[in-house]
Nucleic acid binder design. Structure first.
Lengths: 114, 114
DNA sequence: CGGTATCCAAGGTGATACTG
DNA sequence: CAGTATCACCTTGGATACCG
């Protein structure tokens, strides 16, 4: 079992970017640099507060993003991509390009088979 | 909502390769060409028959792999990557390389924080 | 403002037994 | 050989209300 999983290093990447809103969150943080919690909320209007918090916490645990709390009232929390997180950029870029090229193909197939 | 999801073409890729054993299945089919159901089972000993079937069906629906049934007793079913599926190879390759490079980093972090 | 707590529904996965 | 059927569990995500 370990052999299988160890041999496939695709899985660690998936463990980071899998989650309903994670690719979108990463997209915003990679493009836009530092964002406040409320900024991310308005950039991703459909996400619930709960899920945004959960996803951000997980990305932080994996050292992909950094969380900075300003101890003031009202509170201010800023999120930004880490150096390590930024190494994911080309990976996401390749995935994004594949999606672009093959989305049309996939839609074509759908149309044929209906 | 659609704007968000449409803008991020990473998600279609995730929809294809997300699933506990899918990256491993794809790895075997991309490297090894045609495989029988039973071959895949022995290549991935820990997978259950059920999950292998489910994952293969999903990949087939997405036209990533092809399923050929030989109508004979005992039955023989062969799976292979499609032309379309093969376009995922460089994507998986990039992800795999990232995993290779950054697995050490991640393990290092774990060690520090414990 | 930036969260937590709680409850719930849906989906993914495993174990096991059965089948053409 | 290559499945299917069933049950049971765990995880993910949404809705809602509350908090410092």
């Amino acid at each position: 079992m370990d052999d299988q999983f160890e041999a496939c290093r695709v899985i660690p990447v998936l463990e980071i970017i899998t989650g309903k809103w994670k690719p979108i969150i990463l997209r915003h943080l990679i493009k836009g640099d530092i964002k406040r919690f409320s900024e991310l909320r308005s950039l991703i209007p459909e996400i619930t507060q709960r899920m945004l918090t959960l996803h951000l916490r997980e990305l932080e645990e994996q050292h992909i993003i950094q969380r900075v709390v300003y101890p003031q009232v009202p509170p201010k929390v800023e999120y930004s991509i880490t150096e390590h997180g930024r190494t994911l950029e080309p990976v996401l870029e390749v995935m994004n390009e594949w999606g672009n090229k093959h989305l049309l193909f996939m839609q074509g197939i759908e149309r044929v088979s209906e």
